[in-house]
Design a protein around this nucleic acid. Sequence first.
DNA 1: ATGGTTGAGCGTCAA
Length: 274
Amino acid sequence: MTQAPATQTLRIATWNINSLRLRLPLLERLVAALDPDVICLQETKVPDELFPVDAPAALGYPHAAWRGMKGYNGVAIFSRVPLKPIAGTPDWCARGDCRHLPVRLALPSGPLDLHDFYVPAGGDVPDRDENPKFGHKLDFLAEATAWFGARRKLVRTVLVGDLNIAPLEHDVWSHRQLLDVVSHTPVETTALAAWQATGFHDAMRHFVPADEKLYTWWSYRNRDWRASDRGRRLDHVWVSGDLAGGLAACTILKDARDWPQASDHVPVAVTLRV
DNA sequence: ATGGTTGAGCGTCAA
């Protein structure tokens, strides 16, 4: 006799925290506001030897993983669900950067793979010959696309993070004015679409029509971010096709942009039945 | 066309 696997509601949050140590207190606000089961962070900017190892459990997340380095980058996952790091993923662009943390969550319904990504921002000039950082970004995207494309059919997989690309016209405040601005150039949006087409659904746009403005990031370089509202959707949640039917909610915590010492990114949470 | 702000950690670099 077989029993149907137990399903549950799982809420996954993603946030470019822009220094974990500086903004650790803000994580309490995130938990109070969103009550996520899993928190994926980017730009932790803390080397592993300085990681606040007691912080996840103190917040109510007894399971955690992190990959950090000095000064830049860094990713971490805090979880209420047991997890294990997934081995065997590439060292993207052979740089040793801490831009990807893949884990397998042990859910009652079975394992679920979760990828936390921090894609290179790409510098200011959208030309790989003039700007090596832009070339790095395109190479990173190409490698990730090839790797996911070579997998067998994607199932029970969620990919989140700061992908540093606003792919759709209404993912930026002005499509026309940003077409030659890194994060919204056609070569980037095309590359991101190719990566997504390896088997993912855009979980945020599942809930918000493509003709509505949707942002997760507002620059520090605006005196009044809310008034100017020159935002971009740089942070993303993608789910494999088999999970799309379980999508239940999406929240963009825009209020977080006004928290004390705010990050320039705000948290995004997606709830799914899985 | 330019400049605007922030964080890490002390040089500027990255965003």
